[in-house]
Simulated scan of single mutants.
Amino acid sequence: MATSVALAGARRRRVRSLATRQEIIEATISCFVEIGYFRTTTTEIAKKAGVTRGAVQHYFPTTQHVLEASIDYLRERWLELYFEAAHRTPVGKDYIDQAVDNMWELVNSRLSIAWAELVAASRTDPELRAIVEPAAAQYEKARLEAGRRAYPDFALALREVFERCRDTLEFLSEGMMRTVVIHDREHRIKTQLDWMKQELHKVWEQQSDKVRIR
């Protein structure tokens, strides 16, 4: 009986520990989004997470530890959201149109904004760049594979065409996300999204004999 109680207690502590660690990671990402990388400190993270500074240092002894954990989380959570979006295409909705809408939604998520902040900050911070560059390579490889898995019919039709279309969609969407201060932004962005849908349709019409969408 005593052993069972001790095991139950240990499980509860482990669950609480994992929850606290996750809260710290989420708080770190929120800090990147809300105040930027260079103002994100252990004190700010602790304040956002609602824990003590000592608690943050207990789980993440150095800034590099919490940064690496946050980047890992950003990558894994983004991929989860990507698959969720890809698999919720409404009945009757065009797959290409939905893919464009999904990408635009994802690049405007807090995850993508936090990642963009880290990439931008790494330009002038060699230590951050040493962490971000290899992570970016892994991130991009995972995103490419996620696209193939999410849209297998397109990807298998002609891999080179699929990857070029995916890159076009990703690069233009991320570029538009970063273009914040422009005149008539909403209208101009909608125009570009509609244009991307039209152009991607043209590409795949040329491949219609190879593509069979389930």
Rank of each mutant, 00 (worst) to 15 (best):
M1A: 09
M1H: 13
M1P: 14
A6K: 06
A8P: 00
G9R: 10
G9T: 05
G9W: 10
A10S: 03
R11S: 02
R12Y: 02
V15E: 15
V15P: 12
L18T: 14
A19E: 14
A19Y: 14
R21H: 15
Q22H: 15
I24W: 07
I25M: 00
E26H: 15
T28F: 07
E34W: 00
Y37D: 09
F38K: 01
R39L: 03
T40M: 03
T42D: 05
T42R: 05
T43I: 10
I45Y: 05
A46W: 02
K48Y: 09
G50T: 13
R53T: 09
Q57Y: 13
Q57D: 04
Q57T: 03
Y59T: 08
T62S: 12
T63K: 12
I71R: 04
Y73A: 12
L74C: 10
R77C: 10
R77S: 10
L79R: 14
L81G: 11
L81C: 11
Y82G: 03
F83C: 13
A85D: 13
A85I: 01
A85Q: 12
K93H: 15
D94I: 06
D94C: 09
Y95M: 04
I96H: 00
I96W: 00
D101M: 13
W104N: 09
E105A: 14
V107A: 02
V107R: 06
V107E: 03
V107H: 00
N108E: 05
N108M: 04
L111I: 06
S112M: 07
L118K: 05
L118V: 11
L118S: 03
V119G: 07
A120C: 07
A120R: 07
A120S: 10
A121L: 05
S122C: 03
R123L: 14
D125S: 02
L128I: 03
A130G: 02
I131H: 01
E133K: 10
E133D: 15
P134Y: 00
A135W: 05
A137H: 03
Q138D: 03
E140H: 13
E140R: 15
L144P: 01
G147W: 07
R148C: 11
A150L: 00
A150V: 05
A150K: 01
F154Y: 04
A155L: 11
L156V: 11
L158T: 10
L158H: 15
E160T: 09
R166V: 07
R166S: 13
L169C: 04
E170F: 10
F171D: 12
L172S: 10
L172W: 01
S173H: 08
S173W: 06
E174L: 05
R178E: 08
T179G: 05
V180R: 08
V180Q: 07
V181D: 14
D184T: 06
H187G: 08
K190M: 08
L193N: 04
L193T: 00
E199T: 02
E199Y: 12
R212A: 02
R212L: 09
